[in-house]
Simulated scan of single mutants.
Amino acid sequence: MPIVNRVADLQPDIQAWRRDIHEHPELLYDVHRTAGFVADRLKEFGCDEIVTGLGKTGVVGVIKGKKPASGDIKVIGLRADMDALPVQEATGLPYASKTPGMMHACGHDGHTAMLLGAARYLAETRNFAGDAVVIFQPAEEGGAGAQAMIKDGLMERFKIDQVYGMHNGPGLPVGSFAIRPGPLMAATDSIDIIIEGRGGHAAQPHKCIDSLLVGAQLVTVLQQIVGRNVDPLESAVISICEFHAGNARNVIPQTATLRGTVRTLTPKVRELVEKRVREVVAGTAQITGAKIDLTYTRGYPVTLNHAEQTEVALRAARDVAGEANVHEMPPMMGAEDFSYMLEARPGAFIFCGNGDSAGLHHPAYNFNDEAIVYGTSYFIKIVENTLAA
């Protein structure tokens, strides 16, 4: 039976799984209910091997094709993320989150359900040669769950040759895909700054070192790094998003705290920005006389699509959606911990249209169930095209 027809038949089940997961969001590594739900479904489908607890709460299922692979590529990994966000849902849906302060505001419920749908189809048909490994990952939202699974031996244990991931894309029409080779999403680093000045009376600033003024200078000067140190043909973002200082209108505060994020698309620019941030902070401390402590923390690396595997992804997307509905996209400055998997193995990450929905991480966001057939079929096509029986 053609893929699209069979997946259309499965759509009601996949939608029901998605909505069940949506009602019961869980954060970071604390995805025990979701992981249990996934493992139960994989068992029902007849997966040849099911492993739980990888990367703390990750789940992996192995589905063997009709015959062993004869080519160089024997095992394909397909990944979905399971965790939600600490956001209060504002959709008013009948299947809205039942947990106050948590919701699937990024569509990981949809990603998990679509990969479950693909697993069910692949286990039924087994129309490929080799192994399909379905990877359900915790803690994408800031917890580096992909890295944790890799450290637990994900790639070696299951002998994964290539790995593919997918994310829904609000604003991208349902039934379409978007991808590009090379840098797709940014590296993300964190800046934490604590300024120790000399507090005092607002009427006697000459006796103080104004931590608030020092913080304001830092915010301004840090912005100049992108404008005056980074090549205009390269990309970088520095955003200081927290500034805490003072609690009275007539007291110059003793301390101030700044927190922010850095986004870059190449290792060279990442190194440059970190170097300049450190120099700017040190220079500001020297000029103002304040003591400034900087903690600069490296986060997720660049999500870098491999050229050959991007072509594999393009072929699968075109098979599902038609050539006119598969687009090349510009890089995004958001981050994604699938980047760790792409450092460990060749692969590609693609966006699947979510239609005219609220944006990711918004309280009114909802995964579009109309995208299920396309995303599920894409996962299946990756396996059947790459491991042709």
Rank of each mutant, 00 (worst) to 15 (best):
A8T: 15
Q11M: 11
E23K: 13
Y29R: 13
Y29L: 12
V31N: 09
T34Y: 09
T34V: 14
G36S: 04
F37Y: 15
V38L: 09
A39D: 08
L42R: 07
D48L: 06
L54E: 00
G77D: 00
L85V: 14
K98W: 01
H104R: 12
H108S: 07
H108I: 13
T112R: 08
A118M: 01
Y121F: 15
A123Q: 11
N127S: 15
N127R: 12
G130M: 02
D131Y: 14
D131V: 12
A132T: 04
V134A: 09
A139G: 10
E140K: 15
E141M: 06
G142D: 09
I150G: 10
M155D: 00
K159D: 12
Q162L: 15
G182T: 11
M185S: 08
S190G: 08
I194C: 07
G197P: 07
K207P: 06
D210W: 10
D210S: 05
L212P: 01
L213E: 12
V214R: 05
G215N: 01
G215D: 05
A216P: 11
V221S: 08
G227C: 10
N229E: 14
P232Y: 09
R249S: 14
N250Y: 07
T255W: 07
R263D: 10
T264P: 08
L265N: 03
V269F: 03
R270D: 06
I287G: 08
T288R: 05
T288N: 06
A290H: 02
I292E: 07
Y296K: 10
H306R: 12
E308Q: 15
A313D: 04
L314A: 07
E323M: 05
D337V: 11
F338M: 14
R345Q: 09
G347V: 09
F351P: 05
G355L: 03
G359M: 13
H361S: 02
H362K: 13
E370I: 12
A371V: 09
F379C: 04
L387S: 04
